[in-house]
């Protein structure tokens, strides 16, 4: 896996992020079963942790990310405060967005996660606009956008890819191909198996990697981020992974093939990476266990913080639509 001989610090960070994301979302699975704890749809990315950790760790802190309805992993890897994130998912006043985003629309501009959209296919044009601003302002940063194989069928994605390539904008398009668009399998909703083939149509480099291999994701994302940062235009990274749960926690998954699910379960990105770290003696087992214990503790504290936080006042629903006159430049 580690053919580029990454430093131990990077490997440890990758595993820590993946462990935190897994613990965080496993907890949401449980909370979603108690309807009063979290409201709305819980749309999770269990099984896709290597994509979030691999891509985000390949970015600079000032790089921007634009995410979608399956955003928790991206935001945690980017450095969002787990307590404020959990409180927001619980729609509490102490959440990152004061309880106005909920689980699906999280925006954390303080870590340059400026926008998240649940409109499938909307994130790429938003990211293209953000990347235009980076180019316009002559910044050395890039914008990375996460979208799924389902979103790849939206026209807006193609408009964004064309414009980004035409203007050589620094956008890293990350298509998280988890094999499912709602209840439709990739073979039922896409005319191509490898969505990265579409990059060629927009004259940008496109590569498909094993999305469950965090080092493959990290290394390829690093190269592509470098390409974007050097002003060579956008790049397209397709990560082949699998949605281990339903579209959301409300989904009974009756349409999923248990054999396929089992096959991908064996390819769990955390198990694979843990095995690698142990076998290559990168980290001793007790240190890996410590990372897992710490992640579990962070999540427990986040849940306590969320549970103990108040809901926002009902009338505060009327605030935040407009910037008021006194705040004008």
């Amino acid at each position: 896996m580690n053919d580029k001989f990454l430093p131990v610090g990077v490997l440890r960070k990758l595993y820590s992020d993946m462990a935190l994301i897994r613990h965080f979302e496993d907890k949401l699975v449980l909370l979603a079963q108690e309807k009063s704890r979290v409201v709305g749809m819980q749309i999770l990315a269990n099984g896709q942790e290597a994509v979030a950790a691999g891509v985000v760790n390949a970015l600079e802190p000032d790089d921007v990310i634009v995410s979608n309805h399956r955003s928790h992993g991206h935001l945690l890897a980017k450095g969002a405060d787990p307590q404020k994130l959990m409180a927001e998912i619980m729609c509490k006043a102490t959440g990152v967005n004061k309880g106005k985003a909920g689980t699906l629309h999280l925006a954390v501009p303080e870590i340059n996660a400026i926008m998240t959209s649940t409109i499938v296919g909307a994130s790429p044009p938003l990211a293209m606009g953000a990347a235009f601003a980076q180019q316009y302002l002559d910044r050395s940063n890039i914008t990375t956008v996460f979208f799924g194989d389902g979103a790849a069928a939206e026209g807006s994605v193609h408009e964004a890819m064309n414009m980004a390539s035409l203007w050589k904008l620094p956008v890293l398009f990350v298509c998280e191909n988890n094999c499912w668009a709602g209840a439709q399998h990739l073979r039922e909703h896409s005319c191509v198996e490898n969505i990265a083939r579409r990059a060629d149509a927009y004259d940008m480099p496109g590569t498909t990697v094993d999305g469950n291999d965090v080092l493959a994701v990290y290394n390829t994302a690093s190269d592509m981020a470098d390409h974007c940062r050097k002003g060579k235009g956008p790049a397209f990274l397709e990560t082949r992974t699998y949605r281990m749960r339903g579209h959301g926690e409300h989904d009974p998954c009756h349409y999923m093939d248990p054999a396929e699910l089992e096959k991908w379960g064996l390819l769990c990105p955390l198990k694979t990476f843990r095995k690698y770290l142990e076998e290559h003696q990168v980290l001793p087992t007790d240190q890996i266990n410590d990372i897992d214990r710490k992640a579990a503790l962070i999540v427990e504290e986040a849940v306590i913080f969320g549970d103990e936080s108040p809901f926002p006042a009902a009338a505060d629903a009327l605030n935040d639509l407009w910037i008021e006159e006194e705040n004008r430049h």
Binding site: P125, G129, A133
Partner: peptide, 22 residues
């Protein structure tokens, strides 16, 4: 900026760029 005939992308350009302060 003259753009392609892409209204969704033109509007997305405005939303994304304005979020960055333009």
């Amino acid at each position: 900026k003259d753009t392609p005939v892409s209204e969704a992308a033109i509007a997305g350009l405005a939303v994304g760029a304005s979020a960055m302060g333009l």
